[in-house]
Design a binder for these strands. Structure first.
Length: 258
DNA sequence: ATGGTCGCCATGCGA
């Protein structure tokens, strides 16, 4: 059973690429971030024709997340219940599996812009609220994953040039501590459960030919709970869609349970 | 040194 996350940076522009990717990669669940669409404009019919049920939390212009699932999902929660926020960054749902229900928390974490900025403080506050939410959800659903664009590179090996990014946004110590606080709940970075190529990244800036130079960061993650860990048989980053015409700046990450 | 690219109800802003 495969789960994927992909920041597609506008579902309107990227829909053909999402459909093409799903045809080649018929995952069971696909979590999307940065829809940049209101819910009314989410192309649920085209996605249904492709074999997926869609639930979304959209907003105009910015943010927006969706869960696509081959099986119908239930107990959908939008946003973080303890953190009043007009920005639509989280959608949570339960999907059936051979091992019982699995809780899927799809997150588009704040970027933070610059260390020390108002947006940076918002990012750290937001992570604290996410942690609170995940802790509460784990009580009901021990089989749980948190996947999405975390906008944090966990370690130096997740950055093409660690010295250049030292204590910069996406790499600062407080951001890494906020991510570590999620791991401390009993979550695991599924990517690092397996041997991986060196210099594996999931995001490359559109500027400066960053993809061609592999000047990227690994900021998109699939975190799995203790209960799911024994079933995890793989996690890969699929760089292929980043080579497309008009690509998203992020690559999908696929995690497999077996 | 500065800005370099995308996508957004459109024009500066967020990433």
């Amino acid at each position: 059973m495969k789960f994927a996350t992909w920041n597609i940076n506008s579902l309107r522009v990227r829909l053909p690429q999402v459909l093409e990717w799903l045809a080649d990669n018929p995952v069971d669940v696909l979590c999307l971030q940065e829809l940049k669409l209101i819910d009314e404009r989410v192309p649920v019919d085209a996605l249904r024709d492709a074999g997926y049920h869609t639930v979304s939390a959209g907003q105009p212009t910015y943010n927006g997340v969706a869960i696509l699932s081959r099986e119908p999902v239930h107990d959908v929660v939008r946003n973080l219940p303890t953190y009043d926020d007009p920005q639509q960054r989280v959608i949570t749902a339960t999907v059936p599996s051979a091992w019982g229900d699995i809780r899927v928390i799809n997150t588009y974490c704040p970027n933070g812009q610059e260390v020390g900025s108002d947006k940076y403080r918002y990012k750290l506050e937001w992570f604290a609220a996410l942690r609170e939410f995940v802790a509460e959800q784990l009580k009901t659903w021990p089989r749980l994953m948190v996947l999405g664009d975390f906008n944090v590179a966990p370690e130096d090996r997740d950055i093409h040039d660690p010295e250049k990014w030292r204590e910069k946004i996406l790499a600062s110590t407080p951001e890494r501590e906020a991510l570590q606080a999620l791991f401390d709940l009993g979550l695991h970075d599924s990517f690092r459960l397996f041997e991986q190529p060196e210099r594996s990244f999931s995001w490359w800036d559109y500027r400066q030919l960053a993809f061609r130079r592999n000047a990227g960061l690994r900021i998109d993650h699939v975190l799995i709970s203790d209960a799911l860990k024994p079933h995890c048989v793989g996690c890969i980053i699929d760089k292929e869609p980043r080579r497309n015409e008009q690509p998203s700046d992020h690559a999908p990450v696929i995690m497999e349970l077996g």
